[in-house]
Amino acid sequence: MKRTLAYLFIGIFFGIVMYKSEAASWFRIYEMFRFESFHMYGIMGSALLLGVTGVQLIKRKRIRSFSGEPIKIASKDRGFKNYLFGGIIFGLGWALAGACPGPIYTLIGAGYVSIIIVLAGALLGAFLYGLFKRKLPH
């Protein structure tokens, strides 16, 4: 129960950050892909600066989790085609709908009913991937 509440609060915090940073705005995504503002690059760049530093610290100092377990940060599976092709397909959708999977939920919560259609599409897309996985180059 305590853990469930912790996840809920982390999610709420994440949603607020997505909305207030405007990373959930279609306009910001469009502007980013036209290289007309530093905003989105600043968000990702500063997140990564802290992210890379923190992950290195966790690994080198063998920092433990809140519950005292060793922290394991899994490496991504090796591959090339799936990451590139999947990435390109995702990028096409991200630019068109202007929302990635996190902000989709945030925008629904913010009251944009139309995003439910984007979510329905995303669920259908994930389902189709599962269906055709074996036939795709990986």
């Binding site: 999947g86 397909i89 995702f90 959708g93 068109l96 999977p101 599409g121 995303a122 897309g125 599962g130």
Partner: peptide, 16 residues
Amino acid sequence: LLGGGLLIGFGARYAA
């Protein structure tokens, strides 16, 4: 909207 979502969902799972 549906097409954009479809590309997002398919692409995100393909790229893991």
